[in-house]
Design a protein around this nucleic acid. Sequence first.
DNA 1: TTGCTCCTCACGTCACGTGAGGTGGC
DNA 2: TTGCTCCTCACGTCACGTGAGGTGGC
Lengths: 194, 194
Amino acid sequence: VAGGASAAAGAGLTIARAARAVGLSRTTLMYYERLGLIRPLRRAGSRYRTFRAEDLQALFLISRWRAAGLPLDTVRRLLADPDEAAGALRDHLRSLDRAIESLRAQRRLAQRLLGRGPRADGGAMPLTKAGWSALFRAIGMSEQQMRRWHAEFERENSAGHRQFLRSLGLGAAEIGRIRRWCTRQPSSRRGHGH
Amino acid sequence: VAGGASAAAGAGLTIARAARAVGLSRTTLMYYERLGLIRPLRRAGSRYRTFRAEDLQALFLISRWRAAGLPLDTVRRLLADPDEAAGALRDHLRSLDRAIESLRAQRRLAQRLLGRGPRADGGAMPLTKAGWSALFRAIGMSEQQMRRWHAEFERENSAGHRQFLRSLGLGAAEIGRIRRWCTRQPSSRRGHGH
DNA sequence: TTGCTCCTCACGTCACGTGAGGTGGC
DNA sequence: TTGCTCCTCACGTCACGTGAGGTGGC
Protein backbone atom coordinates (compact mmCIF):
# COMPACT_ATOMS: atom_id res chain seq x y z
CA VAL A 1 0.00 0.00 0.00
CA ALA A 2 2.15 2.85 -1.23
CA GLY A 3 1.99 6.09 -3.17
CA GLY A 4 -0.70 8.60 -2.24
CA ALA A 5 -2.34 11.70 -3.54
CA SER A 6 -1.66 14.18 -0.76
CA ALA A 7 0.55 12.54 1.88
CA ALA A 8 4.28 12.26 1.42
CA ALA A 9 4.06 8.50 0.93
CA GLY A 10 1.95 5.48 1.78
CA ALA A 11 -1.54 4.90 3.06
CA GLY A 12 -1.14 6.62 6.39
CA LEU A 13 -3.56 9.03 7.94
CA THR A 14 -2.71 12.15 9.92
CA ILE A 15 -3.71 12.20 13.55
CA ALA A 16 -6.98 14.10 13.20
CA ARG A 17 -8.23 11.88 10.39
CA ALA A 18 -7.20 8.74 12.23
CA ALA A 19 -9.00 10.02 15.30
CA ARG A 20 -12.21 10.61 13.34
CA ALA A 21 -11.90 7.19 11.72
CA VAL A 22 -11.82 5.36 15.05
CA GLY A 23 -14.08 7.75 16.95
CA LEU A 24 -11.51 8.97 19.47
CA SER A 25 -10.00 12.40 20.05
CA ARG A 26 -6.61 13.59 18.88
CA THR A 27 -5.36 14.05 22.42
CA THR A 28 -6.45 10.53 23.23
CA LEU A 29 -4.32 9.16 20.39
CA MET A 30 -1.35 11.20 21.61
CA TYR A 31 -1.92 9.90 25.11
CA TYR A 32 -2.00 6.29 23.90
CA GLU A 33 1.24 6.87 22.03
CA ARG A 34 2.90 8.22 25.19
CA LEU A 35 1.76 5.09 27.02
CA GLY A 36 3.26 2.98 24.26
CA LEU A 37 -0.05 1.41 23.22
CA ILE A 38 0.46 2.51 19.63
CA ARG A 39 3.53 3.45 17.62
CA PRO A 40 2.51 5.58 14.65
CA LEU A 41 5.22 6.05 12.05
CA ARG A 42 7.44 9.11 12.28
CA ARG A 43 8.87 9.77 8.91
CA ALA A 44 12.34 11.28 8.78
CA GLY A 45 12.07 14.85 7.59
CA SER A 46 8.60 15.29 9.04
CA ARG A 47 7.52 15.79 12.62
CA TYR A 48 4.08 14.44 11.72
CA ARG A 49 2.75 11.09 12.83
CA THR A 50 1.49 8.66 10.21
CA PHE A 51 -1.21 6.18 11.21
CA ARG A 52 -1.11 3.05 9.08
CA ALA A 53 -3.43 0.07 8.90
CA GLU A 54 -1.73 -1.66 11.84
CA ASP A 55 -2.16 1.43 14.00
CA LEU A 56 -5.81 1.68 13.03
CA GLN A 57 -6.32 -1.97 13.84
CA ALA A 58 -4.81 -1.52 17.29
CA LEU A 59 -6.89 1.59 17.85
CA PHE A 60 -10.07 -0.26 17.00
CA LEU A 61 -9.22 -2.97 19.50
CA ILE A 62 -8.39 -0.38 22.14
CA SER A 63 -11.53 1.63 21.52
CA ARG A 64 -13.75 -1.46 21.89
CA TRP A 65 -12.11 -2.53 25.11
CA ARG A 66 -12.23 1.00 26.46
CA ALA A 67 -15.89 1.33 25.50
CA ALA A 68 -16.50 -1.81 27.54
CA GLY A 69 -14.83 -0.05 30.45
CA LEU A 70 -11.55 -1.96 30.65
CA PRO A 71 -8.76 0.17 32.18
CA LEU A 72 -5.82 1.02 29.93
CA ASP A 73 -3.49 -1.08 32.02
CA THR A 74 -5.56 -4.14 31.15
CA VAL A 75 -5.83 -3.04 27.55
CA ARG A 76 -2.05 -2.94 27.37
CA ARG A 77 -1.88 -6.54 28.61
CA LEU A 78 -4.50 -7.70 26.12
CA LEU A 79 -2.68 -6.09 23.21
CA ALA A 80 0.40 -8.08 24.19
CA ASP A 81 -1.48 -11.31 24.86
CA PRO A 82 -4.99 -11.54 23.38
CA ASP A 83 -5.54 -14.95 24.93
CA GLU A 84 -6.18 -13.21 28.21
CA ALA A 85 -9.13 -11.31 26.76
CA ALA A 86 -11.84 -13.76 27.79
CA GLY A 87 -10.64 -13.97 31.37
CA ALA A 88 -10.18 -10.22 31.64
CA LEU A 89 -13.66 -9.59 30.26
CA ARG A 90 -15.21 -12.07 32.66
CA ASP A 91 -13.46 -10.40 35.61
CA HIS A 92 -14.58 -7.05 34.28
CA LEU A 93 -18.20 -8.16 34.11
CA ARG A 94 -18.09 -8.82 37.83
CA SER A 95 -16.53 -5.45 38.60
CA LEU A 96 -19.19 -3.79 36.43
CA ASP A 97 -21.86 -5.55 38.45
CA ARG A 98 -20.32 -4.25 41.65
CA ALA A 99 -20.13 -0.73 40.22
CA ILE A 100 -23.77 -0.85 39.12
CA GLU A 101 -24.85 -2.06 42.54
CA SER A 102 -22.86 0.72 44.18
CA LEU A 103 -24.63 3.33 42.04
CA ARG A 104 -27.99 1.77 42.90
CA ALA A 105 -27.13 2.11 46.58
CA GLN A 106 -26.32 5.78 46.01
CA ARG A 107 -29.66 6.12 44.27
CA ARG A 108 -31.56 4.55 47.15
CA LEU A 109 -29.83 6.83 49.65
CA ALA A 110 -30.50 9.92 47.54
CA GLN A 111 -34.18 9.03 47.44
CA ARG A 112 -34.27 8.47 51.18
CA LEU A 113 -32.70 11.87 51.78
CA LEU A 114 -35.24 13.39 49.41
CA GLY A 115 -38.15 11.68 51.13
CA ARG A 116 -37.46 13.39 54.42
CA GLY A 117 -38.56 16.71 53.01
CA PRO A 118 -36.57 19.78 52.13
CA ARG A 119 -36.06 21.10 55.68
CA ALA A 120 -35.23 17.82 57.37
CA ASP A 121 -31.61 17.98 56.29
CA GLY A 122 -31.29 20.55 59.03
CA GLY A 123 -28.38 22.61 57.83
CA ALA A 124 -30.10 25.71 59.18
CA MET A 125 -31.21 24.03 62.40
CA PRO A 126 -30.01 25.53 65.69
CA LEU A 127 -26.80 23.75 66.54
CA THR A 128 -26.70 21.06 69.21
CA LYS A 129 -30.28 21.40 70.40
CA ALA A 130 -32.87 18.68 70.75
CA GLY A 131 -32.96 18.55 66.95
CA TRP A 132 -29.83 16.41 66.89
CA SER A 133 -31.67 13.15 67.17
CA ALA A 134 -34.24 13.96 64.53
CA LEU A 135 -31.47 15.37 62.39
CA PHE A 136 -29.39 12.22 62.57
CA ARG A 137 -32.33 10.02 61.75
CA ALA A 138 -33.43 12.31 58.96
CA ILE A 139 -29.94 12.17 57.52
CA GLY A 140 -30.19 8.42 57.44
CA MET A 141 -27.49 7.78 60.00
CA SER A 142 -27.49 4.19 61.08
CA GLU A 143 -27.93 3.16 64.67
CA GLN A 144 -24.47 1.69 64.53
CA GLN A 145 -22.98 5.03 63.55
CA MET A 146 -24.85 6.88 66.30
CA ARG A 147 -23.52 4.34 68.68
CA ARG A 148 -19.95 4.74 67.49
CA TRP A 149 -20.18 8.48 67.79
CA HIS A 150 -21.47 8.27 71.37
CA ALA A 151 -18.89 5.62 72.22
CA GLU A 152 -16.02 7.72 70.90
CA PHE A 153 -17.29 10.74 72.78
CA GLU A 154 -17.74 8.78 75.96
CA ARG A 155 -14.33 7.16 75.76
CA GLU A 156 -12.51 10.36 74.98
CA ASN A 157 -14.28 12.61 77.39
CA SER A 158 -17.02 11.09 79.47
CA ALA A 159 -17.69 14.22 81.51
CA GLY A 160 -18.03 16.23 78.31
CA HIS A 161 -20.35 13.58 76.92
CA ARG A 162 -22.61 13.81 79.99
CA GLN A 163 -22.71 17.56 79.68
CA PHE A 164 -23.47 17.32 75.98
CA LEU A 165 -26.38 14.98 76.68
CA ARG A 166 -27.70 17.32 79.37
CA SER A 167 -27.52 20.15 76.82
CA LEU A 168 -29.97 18.17 74.69
CA GLY A 169 -32.48 18.41 77.54
CA LEU A 170 -32.21 14.78 78.61
CA GLY A 171 -32.74 13.69 82.20
CA ALA A 172 -30.23 11.79 84.30
CA ALA A 173 -31.99 8.44 83.78
CA GLU A 174 -31.96 8.78 80.00
CA ILE A 175 -28.34 9.90 80.06
CA GLY A 176 -27.42 6.82 82.05
CA ARG A 177 -29.24 4.56 79.61
CA ILE A 178 -27.43 6.08 76.63
CA ARG A 179 -24.03 5.76 78.29
CA ARG A 180 -24.67 2.11 79.10
CA TRP A 181 -26.04 1.50 75.61
CA CYS A 182 -23.02 2.87 73.81
CA THR A 183 -20.42 1.20 76.02
CA ARG A 184 -21.98 -2.23 75.71
CA GLN A 185 -20.72 -4.74 73.11
CA PRO A 186 -22.06 -4.14 69.60
CA SER A 187 -23.55 -7.65 69.52
CA SER A 188 -26.63 -6.81 71.62
CA ARG A 189 -29.02 -4.87 69.41
CA ARG A 190 -31.68 -2.96 71.28
CA GLY A 191 -33.69 -0.26 69.62
CA HIS A 192 -32.82 3.00 71.27
CA GLY A 193 -33.80 6.47 70.20
CA HIS A 194 -30.32 8.12 70.34
CA VAL B 1 -19.80 21.60 77.35
CA ALA B 2 -16.45 22.25 78.97
CA GLY B 3 -13.74 20.57 81.04
CA GLY B 4 -12.64 17.13 80.01
CA ALA B 5 -10.67 14.21 81.28
CA SER B 6 -7.87 13.97 78.74
CA ALA B 7 -8.18 16.82 76.27
CA ALA B 8 -6.94 20.28 77.12
CA ALA B 9 -10.47 21.66 77.32
CA GLY B 10 -13.99 21.07 76.04
CA ALA B 11 -15.79 18.22 74.33
CA GLY B 12 -13.69 18.17 71.20
CA LEU B 13 -12.34 15.05 69.53
CA THR B 14 -8.97 14.65 67.88
CA ILE B 15 -8.93 13.98 64.17
CA ALA B 16 -8.62 10.21 64.25
CA ARG B 17 -11.46 9.82 66.76
CA ALA B 18 -13.64 12.22 64.84
CA ALA B 19 -12.89 10.28 61.66
CA ARG B 20 -13.94 7.01 63.27
CA ALA B 21 -17.06 8.61 64.68
CA VAL B 22 -18.31 9.73 61.28
CA GLY B 23 -16.89 6.82 59.30
CA LEU B 24 -14.44 8.81 57.18
CA SER B 25 -10.65 8.73 57.01
CA ARG B 26 -8.27 11.21 58.63
CA THR B 27 -6.95 12.39 55.31
CA THR B 28 -10.49 12.98 54.12
CA LEU B 29 -11.15 15.27 57.08
CA MET B 30 -7.93 17.17 56.36
CA TYR B 31 -8.95 17.47 52.73
CA TYR B 32 -12.37 18.85 53.68
CA GLU B 33 -10.70 21.37 55.93
CA ARG B 34 -8.44 22.52 53.09
CA LEU B 35 -11.52 22.98 50.93
CA GLY B 36 -13.13 25.03 53.70
CA LEU B 37 -16.04 22.65 54.23
CA ILE B 38 -15.23 22.36 57.95
CA ARG B 39 -13.35 24.57 60.34
CA PRO B 40 -12.18 22.52 63.31
CA LEU B 41 -10.91 24.56 66.23
CA ARG B 42 -7.20 25.28 66.45
CA ARG B 43 -6.35 26.05 70.01
CA ALA B 44 -3.54 28.52 70.62
CA GLY B 45 -0.56 26.67 71.98
CA SER B 46 -1.47 23.45 70.20
CA ARG B 47 -1.09 22.51 66.58
CA TYR B 48 -3.84 19.93 66.99
CA ARG B 49 -7.30 20.23 65.55
CA THR B 50 -10.30 19.94 67.81
CA PHE B 51 -13.55 18.65 66.35
CA ARG B 52 -16.57 19.89 68.25
CA ALA B 53 -20.25 19.08 67.96
CA GLU B 54 -20.78 21.56 65.13
CA ASP B 55 -17.95 20.03 63.16
CA LEU B 56 -19.34 16.55 63.70
CA GLN B 57 -22.76 17.72 62.60
CA ALA B 58 -21.33 19.16 59.38
CA LEU B 59 -19.33 15.98 58.80
CA PHE B 60 -22.44 13.84 59.14
CA LEU B 61 -24.23 15.96 56.57
CA ILE B 62 -21.26 15.82 54.24
CA SER B 63 -20.83 12.08 54.64
CA ARG B 64 -24.49 11.41 53.82
CA TRP B 65 -24.41 13.59 50.73
CA ARG B 66 -21.12 12.07 49.61
CA ALA B 67 -22.48 8.56 50.18
CA ALA B 68 -25.33 9.51 47.87
CA GLY B 69 -22.72 10.49 45.30
CA LEU B 70 -23.05 14.27 45.34
CA PRO B 71 -19.79 15.98 44.28
CA LEU B 72 -18.04 18.10 46.90
CA ASP B 73 -18.73 21.26 44.94
CA THR B 74 -22.46 20.63 45.36
CA VAL B 75 -21.96 19.65 49.00
CA ARG B 76 -20.32 23.01 49.61
CA ARG B 77 -23.35 24.79 48.13
CA LEU B 78 -25.77 22.72 50.22
CA LEU B 79 -23.88 23.47 53.43
CA ALA B 80 -24.29 27.16 52.69
CA ASP B 81 -27.91 26.88 51.58
CA PRO B 82 -29.74 23.70 52.64
CA ASP B 83 -32.88 24.78 50.80
CA GLU B 84 -31.22 23.72 47.60
CA ALA B 85 -30.89 20.14 48.82
CA ALA B 86 -34.12 18.84 47.32
CA GLY B 87 -33.41 20.28 43.91
CA ALA B 88 -29.82 19.09 43.94
CA LEU B 89 -30.85 15.59 44.96
CA ARG B 90 -33.47 15.43 42.23
CA ASP B 91 -30.90 16.52 39.63
CA HIS B 92 -28.49 13.99 41.03
CA LEU B 93 -31.02 11.17 40.71
CA ARG B 94 -31.15 11.84 36.99
CA SER B 95 -27.38 11.85 36.65
CA LEU B 96 -27.23 8.59 38.60
CA ASP B 97 -29.72 7.08 36.17
CA ARG B 98 -27.52 8.15 33.27
CA ALA B 99 -24.43 6.71 34.95
CA ILE B 100 -26.19 3.40 35.61
CA GLU B 101 -27.36 3.19 32.01
CA SER B 102 -23.81 3.90 30.83
CA LEU B 103 -22.45 1.04 32.94
CA ARG B 104 -25.16 -1.25 31.59
CA ALA B 105 -24.08 -0.36 28.06
CA GLN B 106 -20.50 -1.24 28.99
CA ARG B 107 -21.77 -4.52 30.37
CA ARG B 108 -23.67 -5.34 27.20
CA LEU B 109 -20.61 -4.60 25.07
CA ALA B 110 -18.34 -6.68 27.33
CA GLN B 111 -20.68 -9.62 26.94
CA ARG B 112 -20.82 -9.19 23.18
CA LEU B 113 -17.01 -9.19 23.02
CA LEU B 114 -16.96 -12.30 25.19
CA GLY B 115 -19.53 -14.08 23.05
CA ARG B 116 -17.27 -13.99 20.01
CA GLY B 117 -14.94 -16.53 21.55
CA PRO B 118 -11.43 -16.18 22.87
CA ARG B 119 -9.59 -16.05 19.52
CA ALA B 120 -11.98 -13.80 17.66
CA ASP B 121 -10.47 -10.66 19.18
CA GLY B 122 -7.71 -11.24 16.69
CA GLY B 123 -4.76 -9.57 18.37
CA ALA B 124 -2.53 -12.35 17.04
CA MET B 125 -4.10 -12.37 13.60
CA PRO B 126 -1.86 -11.64 10.63
CA LEU B 127 -2.08 -7.93 10.05
CA THR B 128 -4.11 -6.53 7.19
CA LYS B 129 -5.10 -9.81 5.59
CA ALA B 130 -8.58 -11.03 4.74
CA GLY B 131 -9.20 -11.33 8.49
CA TRP B 132 -9.88 -7.60 8.77
CA SER B 133 -13.56 -7.87 8.07
CA ALA B 134 -14.17 -10.74 10.45
CA LEU B 135 -11.98 -8.99 12.99
CA PHE B 136 -13.93 -5.77 12.83
CA ARG B 137 -17.24 -7.55 13.15
CA ALA B 138 -15.94 -9.71 15.97
CA ILE B 139 -14.79 -6.60 17.77
CA GLY B 140 -18.29 -5.24 17.56
CA MET B 141 -17.44 -2.35 15.29
CA SER B 142 -20.56 -0.73 13.98
CA GLU B 143 -21.27 -0.43 10.30
CA GLN B 144 -21.20 3.31 10.72
CA GLN B 145 -17.69 3.17 12.10
CA MET B 146 -16.48 0.90 9.29
CA ARG B 147 -17.95 3.37 6.89
CA ARG B 148 -16.25 6.33 8.52
CA TRP B 149 -12.93 4.53 8.42
CA HIS B 150 -13.28 3.75 4.72
CA ALA B 151 -14.52 7.24 3.98
CA GLU B 152 -11.55 8.85 5.75
CA PHE B 153 -9.16 6.56 3.95
CA GLU B 154 -10.80 7.22 0.59
CA ARG B 155 -10.88 10.98 1.10
CA GLU B 156 -7.30 11.23 2.28
CA ASN B 157 -5.74 8.82 -0.14
CA SER B 158 -8.03 7.15 -2.63
CA ALA B 159 -5.24 5.37 -4.50
CA GLY B 160 -3.93 3.99 -1.22
CA HIS B 161 -7.44 2.90 -0.31
CA ARG B 162 -7.81 0.99 -3.57
CA GLN B 163 -4.51 -0.69 -3.03
CA PHE B 164 -5.44 -1.58 0.52
CA LEU B 165 -8.69 -3.16 -0.67
CA ARG B 166 -6.82 -5.13 -3.31
CA SER B 167 -4.47 -6.34 -0.58
CA LEU B 168 -7.49 -7.87 1.11
CA GLY B 169 -8.01 -10.05 -1.98
CA LEU B 170 -11.05 -8.20 -3.27
CA GLY B 171 -11.90 -7.94 -6.95
CA ALA B 172 -12.36 -4.71 -8.86
CA ALA B 173 -16.16 -4.93 -8.78
CA GLU B 174 -16.24 -5.31 -5.00
CA ILE B 175 -13.73 -2.51 -4.57
CA GLY B 176 -15.92 -0.25 -6.66
CA ARG B 177 -18.97 -1.10 -4.56
CA ILE B 178 -17.16 -0.32 -1.31
CA ARG B 179 -15.86 2.99 -2.61
CA ARG B 180 -19.33 4.04 -3.71
CA TRP B 181 -20.83 2.80 -0.45
CA CYS B 182 -18.53 4.82 1.77
CA THR B 183 -18.69 8.04 -0.25
CA ARG B 184 -22.49 8.06 -0.33
CA GLN B 185 -24.48 10.06 2.22
CA PRO B 186 -24.75 8.38 5.64
CA SER B 187 -28.57 8.46 5.42
CA SER B 188 -28.86 5.46 3.05
CA ARG B 189 -28.32 2.31 5.10
CA ARG B 190 -27.50 -0.76 3.04
CA GLY B 191 -26.08 -3.84 4.62
CA HIS B 192 -22.59 -4.32 3.27
CA GLY B 193 -19.98 -6.77 4.42
CA HIS B 194 -17.06 -4.33 4.77
C1' DT C 1 12.39 6.71 77.36
C1' DT C 2 8.94 4.34 74.60
C1' DG C 3 4.88 4.43 71.84
C1' DC C 4 1.15 6.63 70.08
C1' DT C 5 -1.01 10.23 67.72
C1' DC C 6 -0.55 14.29 65.72
C1' DC C 7 1.47 17.63 62.15
C1' DT C 8 2.82 19.50 57.24
C1' DC C 9 4.36 19.15 52.64
C1' DA C 10 4.53 16.92 48.20
C1' DC C 11 3.56 13.70 45.00
C1' DG C 12 0.57 9.82 42.85
C1' DT C 13 -3.90 8.28 40.92
C1' DC C 14 -6.95 7.79 36.07
C1' DA C 15 -7.74 9.09 31.38
C1' DC C 16 -7.61 12.34 29.24
C1' DG C 17 -8.90 18.03 28.13
C1' DT C 18 -7.23 22.58 27.56
C1' DG C 19 -4.65 26.21 26.55
C1' DA C 20 0.02 28.48 25.25
C1' DG C 21 3.18 29.23 21.88
C1' DG C 22 5.09 27.77 17.73
C1' DT C 23 5.91 25.41 12.93
C1' DG C 24 5.08 22.98 8.20
C1' DG C 25 2.59 22.47 3.74
C1' DC C 26 -0.75 23.74 0.12
C1' DT D 1 0.23 35.41 2.25
C1' DT D 2 -3.71 33.12 4.45
C1' DG D 3 -5.64 29.22 6.74
C1' DC D 4 -5.45 24.81 8.21
C1' DT D 5 -3.39 21.16 10.60
C1' DC D 6 0.24 19.72 12.90
C1' DC D 7 3.69 19.87 16.93
C1' DT D 8 5.38 19.95 22.10
C1' DC D 9 5.20 21.18 26.81
C1' DA D 10 2.75 21.97 31.05
C1' DC D 11 -0.94 22.25 33.89
C1' DG D 12 -5.95 21.04 35.40
C1' DT D 13 -9.42 17.55 36.73
C1' DC D 14 -11.71 14.65 41.14
C1' DA D 15 -11.39 13.05 45.79
C1' DC D 16 -8.66 11.61 48.18
C1' DG D 17 -4.22 7.91 49.52
C1' DT D 18 0.51 7.42 50.58
C1' DG D 19 4.76 8.12 52.10
C1' DA D 20 8.63 11.27 54.08
C1' DG D 21 10.25 13.55 57.81
C1' DG D 22 9.31 15.58 62.05
C1' DT D 23 7.00 16.97 66.77
C1' DG D 24 3.95 16.90 71.17
C1' DG D 25 1.93 14.54 75.26
C1' DC D 26 1.24 10.72 78.53
